[in-house]
């Protein structure tokens, strides 16, 4: 982000989408050539029940301007019950984020089925607008120069291990 951050600010939004419903719905939006803002980055997970609240905390800690968790509608979960747990977890998560001074408007959960391409487009568009209006997130780690994960050393060590595989 440059000097004229205010005018060129494009938020980055992370969306966790379940493979069976929302990810398929997002693909369908593509097949139908629907247009939506390019702010969202999708992480494919097998089920919204796979999404650990810690992933959301991590995204905010890294500087995410918005985070979405999307899955099948209740009753439609590919794994029967996964999204019921999702619902409880993120209902609480939303309250906890607000309680912790993290703007709750930065966190969104949606049920989007494999056929609801338009709903995916609308949800992403809406969240992008809401988050853009909020401005850059203030939660980002600011106390040190590099916010990069201690990745390089880690990759080295795992690569060395890999040689044995």
């Amino acid at each position: 982000m440059g000097i004229n951050e205010a005018t060129t600010y494009e938020p980055k939004i992370l969306a966790f989408c379940c493979n069976w419903c929302t990810y398929t719905g997002a693909d369908l939006a593509g097949l139908n050539r629907m247009k939506y803002p390019a702010n969202v980055r999708v992480v494919r997970v097998p089920c919204s029940g796979r999404v650990n609240p810690q992933f959301i905390l991590r995204a905010f800690a890294r500087g995410a301007d918005g985070v979405m968790v999307c899955g099948c509608h209740p009753g439609d979960c590919h794994y029967t019950t996964g999204n019921y747990f999702t619902r409880r977890r993120f209902m609480l998560m939303k309250k906890v984020l607000e309680f912790n001074g993290i703007e709750p408007q930065r966190f969104h959960a949606r049920w989007i089925s494999g056929s609801e391409a338009a709903k995916f487009r609308d949800a992403v568009t809406e969240v992008a607008q809401v988050v853009k209006a909020l401005g850059p997130a203030a939660t980002k780690v600011t106390t040190q120069a590099s916010s990069k994960a201690p990745a390089s050393a880690d990759i080295e060590s795992s690569v060395q291990k890999e040689g044995a595989l």
């Binding site: 905390l57 609480l92 600011t142």
Partner: peptide, 24 residues
């Protein structure tokens, strides 16, 4: 360390990540 849920920095953000995660 290998899973990396918790950042090791002494920053308010990492401390808060710990606090909120523990609460969860």
């Amino acid at each position: 360390h290998r899973t990396g849920f918790q950042g090791k920095r002494h920053s308010a953000t990492d401390n808060q990540t710990f606090g909120v995660t523990r609460a969860f």
